[in-house]
Amino acid sequence: MAKRIGKQTVKLQNPPSILSYASIVGPKEGQGPLGEYFDQVLEDDMFGEKSWEKAECKMLQETIKLSMKKANLTADDINYVLAGDLLNQIISASFMAREIQIPYIGLYGACSTMSESLSLAAMLIDGGFADYVIAATSSHFSSAERQYRFPLELGTQRPLTSTWTVTGAGATVLGTTSKGNGPYITYVTTGKVVDLGIKDQFNMGAAMAPAAADTIKTHFDDTGFKPEDYDLIISGDLGIIGIDLTQQLLGQMKLDINNIFTDCGLKIFDTEKQDTHAGASGCGCSAAVLNGYLIKEIINGKYNRILFMSTGALLSPISTLQGESIPGIAHAVTIQRTLD
């Protein structure tokens, strides 16, 4: 068990290298502050398809194809694709796999799917079970909205605590250490489900903050790192309220990361100008920010080591109606430019 350190963390002995990354986003995301970082910005969020579900699936497919192309690999080279999404029975990911024809492992971690798939991909490679693995996920504002909330044309007011589901997809191709020049995945901390009784589905930041705080605290306890060891700690879609609550919880646990802590959901949209209220959410949020912005900035040298932590609210429309509280989860992955 030499690879396991602490309670929930794996230290990868042969850290997998990120070989390539790709992202495709919708029009609103393209107008946001990170617009120029994405590989492709759709002009039309239907992507030439007949339904939003089909559009989401195509977006995921095209992102994965693009990521393989950027790594000069074909589907035959890839050993596994790990993917998931928000829709019932993860149809975007499974229908993508129907087209792509790579051995497929479907995942559901709600909005935490990007770091979940990245963690598992890294462990598969470090374990020697694969040479090349793709981790990918997607979400679409309109397909998520109709499944979780109301029809789009219904005249309702969104509460100030609500977040805007990102239309976007991201894919990362990982390979064994010798196959690339970094950035590398070095640590993986798998989160526990934490639920402190929040029931408001329009305040998912509050529901996920305890899980985020728990995973960050555990990561530092397990690895012995100090906040100074990181240039950036970035959560998936906590939003303004979730970030604030996570900092308050960590403050009570005597861990101060406030000056390096931010959220993908606050990066991708201009919350004031684009009227997204508390921020952005969805699998595609952290996936697009990681594969559009973060990896690029690590390669450019802006960041040396980051902790990437997608956060998920594991609710369903049925559990909400039955009065259940919202279980939260967060998985953290350490990405660094060079191996020390």
Binding site: L160, L196, G197, A206, I241, L245, L249
Partner: peptide, 19 residues
């Protein structure tokens, strides 16, 4: 998860922090 006092405290913080 099953710490009732923690849940109550947390929900109080959430209420204060929510616009």
């Amino acid at each position: 998860n099953n710490d009732i006092n923690l849940q109550k405290d947390y929900q109080k913080i959430v209420k204060q922090s929510t616009p």
